[in-house]
Design a protein around this nucleic acid. Structure first.
Lengths: 140, 140
DNA sequence: ATCTGATTTGGAGTGTATCCAAACAATTTG
DNA sequence: CAAATTGTTTGGATACACTCCAAATCAGAT
């Protein structure tokens, strides 16, 4: 997880991390499965993979929580989402439209592109989809 | 292929169609495989799927060509690429950077979003990545 | 008519994502 | 505290996109 390109996770896994980040603290796997509309067994499996990769800590039958790295990474993921949504809203998409649209492709947009876009926007702190934090993002 | 959402093809298949469109006319499967850097057997298989879906016509051992629908669809794909590249270039990305970046996520951006973005830009005809044709795109 | 190079077919493998049924743990209830 | 209930995990199977390799096949040239 050294060099963050922003492309390390699949779309689904990005959803998991963003959800965990927004929920905060310890989260039950069934909360995840009902939120992401998948079978509980699916969320358990995916969480296992995220745990293996170091993004989350999973205490079986108890819940899941972001690791320190996972939290920092998820913060980037949420920022990326918000920056891209803000960008699309500048081109006539509604807040919800932009948010939905971005959800489909965000996981394929690199961290370096986000940094460039964010810089060009003057590092906004308010998006159409949520606040934008400039702590980790790597954005000065 | 009635209702075009822009999301009907996987990233790889989008690459195939864009390549076919740019090349024009009859194209050999080995041209495709060398361009997309995959084994010839892979391109043959993928072309088979695109043919099955009606985007291309494949004459075995002879070559591949876009169908009428495939051509119209590929035109949309190329326009989408060019519009998105142009958009990113407005946020500080270089022409090549934008092009590369867009190549990774373009296949997940809907036609309706593209129409909105394109309209908001005033239907530009010149991108950073190639011309933008407004014939089919559905863009008035 | 045969040889050569291009192309296709068949088979197998990878990675991600999914669900179902069965096993299991924790918590609640009697 | 034991039993029943609820929530969670495991194991197994499937699907889909994409890949390559080896073997068969075809088209064109010698």
């Amino acid at each position: 997880m050294q060099e963050i390109t922003g492309l390390e996770l699949s779309p689904k896994k990005v959803e998991y991390l963003k959800f965990l980040y927004k929920k905060g603290g310890m989260v039950r796997t069934t909360d995840i499965s009902s939120q992401l509309k998948v079978d509980p067994s699916t969320s358990t499996k995916t969480i296992g993979e995220l745990a293996h990769a170091g993004y989350v800590e999973h205490i079986p039958y108890r819940g899941v929580r972001l690791t320190e790295e996972g939290h920092a990474y998820a913060e980037f993921l949420v920022n990326r989402h918000n920056i891209l949504s803000l960008m699309l809203s500048h081109y006539g998409l509604s807040a919800e439209g932009a948010c939905q649209e971005v959800s489909r492709f965000e996981s394929f947009v690199s961290r370096s592109a986000i940094e460039t876009i964010c810089g060009s926007m003057g590092h906004p702190t308010v998006g159409v989809c949520g606040e934008i934090r400039h702590t980790l993002c790597g954005i000065p």
